[in-house]
């Protein structure tokens, strides 16, 4: 499959997360037109209704906006994108820390694992 979705979360939620990441990274720059529902459905290999739902939620959240006839665009609100950019690392970390804790590694030990790994990367 072109896309591996996590089995636990609804697919529309996972698509929202991916689009938010693209917006935060600048892959989808502010003011840029968003691809049509049909194109995105094919890209992600999912039902068009799922894409519709994801885009509608993103619009509700203010990350996208609609022009009456020409389609959807990424928000021009630079402050909003900046705060999104800041929120993503903490959500990545929270997932990582949860998994480490779940694996039985105590909180104080986690930074050491991270440090060791990063030092190892340069070699």
């Amino acid at each position: 499959m072109k896309n591996n979705f996590d089995s636990k979360q609804p697919i529309y939620q996972q698509i929202i997360d991916r689009i938010l990441t693209s917006i935060a990274k600048g892959d989808m720059p502010s003011g840029e037109k968003v691809a049509s529902v049909r194109v995105m459905a094919l890209y992600y290999g999912v039902n068009p209704n799922t894409i519709q739902k994801s885009l509608a939620k993103l619009e509700e959240m203010g990350y996208l906006y609609s022009e009456r006839t020409s389609g959807r665009y990424v928000t021009n609100d630079a402050a909003k994108i900046a705060s999104l950019r800041q929120s993503i690392p903490s959500s990545i970390i929270s997932e990582f820390v949860d998994e480490m804790l779940d694996f039985g590694i105590a909180k104080p030990e986690i930074p050491k694992y991270v440090r060791d790994y990063i030092e190892g990367m340069d070699n």
């Binding site: 979705f5 089995s7 979360q9 609804p10 697919i11 799922t50």
Partner: peptide
């Protein structure tokens, strides 16, 4: 709804 199943059961349809 497939999304509801995933949300409520925390597993994919296949599982």
């Amino acid at each position: 709804d497939v999304d509801k199943i995933r949300e409520e059961k925390g597993q994919s349809l296949d599982q």
